[in-house]
Write a protein that binds this DNA or RNA. Structure first.
Lengths: 356, 356
DNA sequence: TTGTATGCGTTATCAC
DNA sequence: GTGATAACGCATACAA
């Protein structure tokens, strides 16, 4: 092939061969020099590095991946990037992955099976080295079988197995699970409500979202154990979940003493919907959330919630995945502690000097 | 997809050659059959497809990219995935890209030059076909020169050029720019405040964030034109931007008539910080935001803001990029309309039946 | 310490 | 219609 041919105006990409040629060494030497191989002499190394900069050489990740059979890419399947909770976890995941030298591919499943399947297929084609599942409805077990490697972490899973036995999740032996201790969190939350004088409690959730049933069932169990009362369940459609009026309507006319919401976003929506109806929080009803997103701390009234370590979750997911990839062993289930944050939305005596 | 066949647990990955061998055709034929090439006979096509499913063949994206010199990947450099505004835009960008057959690589720059440079390098190595810049401090012009192709869109740029002339941005000729009509939005906002009786107005921004100076300067100009008053500027550090107490302190003891915040998040933080100080909104001071994130509609008082079409922005960015890649022509600057949403945080007569 | 040769899995260019 | 063959750009086993 005529290498002395001047490249057409199409500006050919500069490759390793080009920098090797400029220095007067072989491609292997150039490759090794840039990879920091110990057995390359200092002069040649610097020469190669200089040439690479001169030519503006940028290694091609596809070629490298093809050769080394590793993309240094992590995949994350999530429900919705725009959700504040998931966004926070995703941000931490990405940052930590970058620290470990990995890039991450985010795909949103929007809680739809077809999209999730499609996403899994994309992850497979892209040959991601590891995969994190967050807020997806797809069964992790199924993914793991379709996926030959065991390089899958299941972040905040919330369906199936954990419920059996009803005893909570401590010691859950399934590897690759990363979750917060929702059982303890919900227990603390319900205890707080009962201690605050609540008898009737309603759980507000989103229809069809499998996530949340653990929280709901735990609440049901603790409530009955403490007071004998039966947890009322209110469900709103996914499309209605952001409409305060619809949420308030779903709650209905006869208010419970407290409304326990699946997450903070839903709680804030409920707060607004109730306000529009003339219902006062916490005077007429308590409202509490779950997750501890920043906005929950800035609402009026400020929202009682369970703080989950979103950043830590994302970071741990990335670290666990990288460890599994590089060491070859997937960590056992890891449960992160949560913390109850009691705020004004569930407190009788309004603290502070605010209000008439 | 739905077959109950489990992929071979064998060590080697199944490749196109395997599929071809099973059917008894050449690799070329197998490749063409799966690609839907018109000149492949129906029998062989179905045979190849069946074999591919049987063997669990998954094409290798790296190999294909290497060969066809295209990754079908879009890059998006953003400030923070956890930010509700950026998360929303990112979600729409990803969804639309997927619709067009592209996968997207998100990298967060966290408003730090080094991280952004590193991200650009990663995008280059990964050979993304197009790049979207959102909330980054890096100069788009610089990126475009470092990037040989013109496959870069600049989403919501907020520095430099647009300010010259002071006349706004309509007809900005720079290609690849996608933005909302912030000038009109801020103008409407300031007019609303002035019409509501505000004389003194303060702008609350984040130090070091270049984004926002267009909004600030527009507010300054409109305010002076309308009332002759001088816009006061309050700045909080990036790390203090989420701390209500610090934000309230930054605002100081003598309140203006209205506080115009860089974005909704900052406004909500300010709302909470002021409340802690015993300052009532809107009675003592008006507070308004910008962006129109969902939480702004659910706060108490509900936040007056400028609604920006976040979903549309993300979608348009993806479409523009794909068009530039596939047709080869980058669209001229596109300006999306915004809408003023007047709510309780800047309204004297409190509407509705809420409150004592 | 450096060079040679080979192959990663795919698609495109030729032949037939 | 289909098949052989040659790249794409890189890393590495094996020589020297």
């Amino acid at each position: 092939v005529g290498s002395d041919e001047t490249p057409p105006e199409g500006a050919r990409r500069v490759t390793l061969a080009d920098v090797a040629e400029l220095v007067g060494v072989s491609k292997s030497t150039a490759s090794r020099a840039l990879a920091g191989d110990a057995r390359i002499s200092e002069p040649t190394r610097t020469a190669v590095e200089a040439a690479a900069i001169t030519l503006g050489f940028v290694p091609d990740a596809s070629a490298r991946s093809l050769r080394v059979r590793s993309t240094r890419t992590l995949g994350m399947l999530l429900g919705d990037l725009g959700d504040p909770y998931q966004g926070q976890v995703a941000a931490a995941f990405e940052a930590q992955a970058r620290l470990r030298g990995y890039t991450v591919l985010f795909l949103a499943g929007h809680y739809e099976r077809d999209l999730e399947k499609q996403a899994i297929a994309t992850f497979a084609e892209r040959r991601v080295d590891g995969l994190a599942l967050l807020s997806s409805t797809v069964d992790p077990i199924e993914v793991k079988t379709r996926w030959r490697q065991e390089h899958v972490v299941d972040v905040q899973p919330d369906a199936g197995a954990p419920l059996r036995g009803g005893g909570g999740l401590r010691g859950d032996p399934r590897p690759g699970v990363i979750r917060t201790d929702d059982v303890t969190g919900i227990t603390a939350l319900v205890n707080h409500l009962v201690d605050g004088g609540c008898r009737s409690v309603a759980y507000l959730g989103v229809t069809g979202r499998t996530a949340g049933i653990l929280r709901r069932e735990t609440a049901r169990r603790v409530l009955r154990a403490r007071t004998g009362a039966v947890l009322r369940t209110v469900e709103v459609g996914a499309e209605a979940g952001e409409d305060p009026t619809l949420v308030a309507e779903a709650i209905g006319p006869d208010l419970p003493d407290a409304i326990l919401c699946y997450d903070d976003t839903l709680a804030l929506v409920a707060l607004d919907g109730l306000r529009s109806r003339g219902v006062r929080v916490p005077e007429d009803v308590f409202v509490v959330g779950f997750d501890g997103i920043p906005f929950a701390a800035w609402s009026s009234p400020r929202l009682t919630t369970v703080l989950t370590p979103m950043t830590q979750i994302g970071r741990l997911a990335a670290d666990t995945l990288v460890l599994a990839i590089e060491i070859g062993v997937m960590a056992d289930a890891q449960v992160l502690p949560v913390e109850l944050a009691v705020r004004a939305s569930s407190t009788r005596i309004r603290p502070g000097h605010v209000g008439a």
